[in-house]
Every structure is written in C-alpha cells, then in structure tokens.
Amino acid sequence: MAVDKELGELTEHIAEAVAGVPGVAFLRPGLAGLLRASPSGKGMLSGRGARSAVRITRTRTPRSLAIEVSVVLRSSPRALDLTRAVRAAVLETVRTQLGPDVQARVTINVTGLI
C-alpha cells in the first residue's frame, strides 16, 4: 500500500536524521513502555534494528502521526538537551518529507548512555 510505503520511507529518513544528530551514538530499540513487549527480546544495532528503533503509527486525528524514537546517547552533553535536538530533527524530517500540514507527536526514549 502506498501509505505503508510512505511510512516506511519516512522511517528511513527519520533514522538517518536522528543518527546524524551530534551526541547520538546510535539508534537502538528498547523495550520501552511497561505494556509493550518485544517479539524476540533481542535488539540489533543496525539495519532491522534501526528501523524498529523508529516506530510510526497513525493516530485517530487525520494527518497526524505518533512517532517514537529510541536512541543511545553519549554521556555529554546533557541527555535532555540531546533528546530535544533529536525531536527537532524528527520534526524537521516530517516537515520535509510530508509537508507542513502533518502533525507529529514525538516520543524520545534514551535506551543507553555511553
């Protein structure tokens, strides 16, 4: 479906943008959230793992997405500043790929510090 292809491409673009943020070590999915279980319990640091570190779902509101990104950060600068930079990168990517009319609620998970 065109929609899935679109979201799939968006995932790739977001992953690339996030990895490019200074201070991001790499993308890595976590078992974030108390109620969500990961299928295998094992993560990978690239390829398939990178994609599952970026989860995009449509919300009930039209032209609105929920995006969840999981990253491992360097220990400096401050984690909160880095997560805000990551969010900015994500929103910028959404804007670039889908235009200014698409809303996105972005959740950032820090799954490690190195």
């Binding site: 976590g30 959230g33 108390l34 990978m44 984690a79 909160l80 997560t83 959740t107 950032i108 820090v110």
Partner: peptide, 21 residues
C-alpha cells in the same frame, strides 16, 4: 545485544515527552 524490559523515567518537565531507561 540483549534487551531488558524495564521502566523508563521522565526527562524534562511534565510537558516533555522524553524518557530514559
């Protein structure tokens, strides 16, 4: 390579949506 389930904790203020394991 192992992932462990566990809680995440809030980064920032109540308005933020940033978390850390």
């Amino acid at each position: 390579l192992e992932l462990r389930p566990g809680r995440t904790l809030p980064l920032g203020t109540t308005e933020d949506d940033d978390w850390i394991v």
